[in-house]
């Protein structure tokens, strides 16, 4: 399997042979002596030409985040299957999602300022979400009419929960 990685503005390609466990790095210097061990969930140790890196990785919705020595790298990865998919386009989904307001973080719904049927403008406060004792207002991403409210006051929600639909 080939993996296309992007970090900051740098792109390079990793090939992984899943049968022989070999990794090859393209797009960097020619030789890469690689010894990778998994230490724990999300924690890897890499000897790259005998240089040592302890890498802790977590997953956000957008990319993978790898920390090395307390510094973070956001890594976008596409495998060749996904790259083919995006080449032939699967964009219809995105268009339908325009009026869907999702929660950017987990938290507790403390106020809902609008009701179904309300006309809202871009940036109208829709609801307040409390997370870690701070209240954060979620604002409308567009002009439109509220057609559905999917959460209630007092509800605990996770990140990416659908909050409201605006048409």
């Amino acid at each position: 399997m080939k993996y296309f990685c992007k970090i900051n503005e740098h792109e390079f390609q990793l090939s992984v042979n899943h049968e022989t466990d070999e990794i090859r790095v393209h797009g960097t210097k020619e030789t890469a002596d690689i010894d990778l061990v998994k230490i724990d969930g999300g924690l890897y140790h890499l000897l790259l030409e005998n240089k040592s890196y302890l890498i802790s990785v977590s997953n956000t919705n957008m990319y993978f985040r790898a920390s090395i020595g307390g510094e973070e790298y956001n890594v976008e990865i596409e495998d060749n299957i996904n790259r083919l998919k995006s080449k032939y386009g699967e964009k219809a989904e995105d268009v339908n999602n325009l009026g869907k307001v999702h929660s950017p973080m987990p938290g507790l719904v403390v106020h809902i300022y609008v009701s179904v049927g309300d006309e809202v403008q871009l940036n109208t406060p829709l609801l307040a979400l409390e997370a870690m004792k701070m209240e954060n207002e979620i604002i409308s991403p567009a002009n439109g009419k509220i057609t559905d409210i999917s959460v209630t006051t007092g509800q605990n929600i996770s990140a990416e929960t659908l909050l409201m639909t605006i048409e």
């Binding site: 960097t28 790259l48 090395i68 495998d79």
Partner: peptide, 15 residues
């Protein structure tokens, strides 16, 4: 070199 290491770590995590 950290950039390369980060990419390898992230790909390993993905797999």
């Amino acid at each position: 070199p950290e950039r390369t290491a980060a990419a390898i770590g992230a790909a390993a995590y993905k797999v």
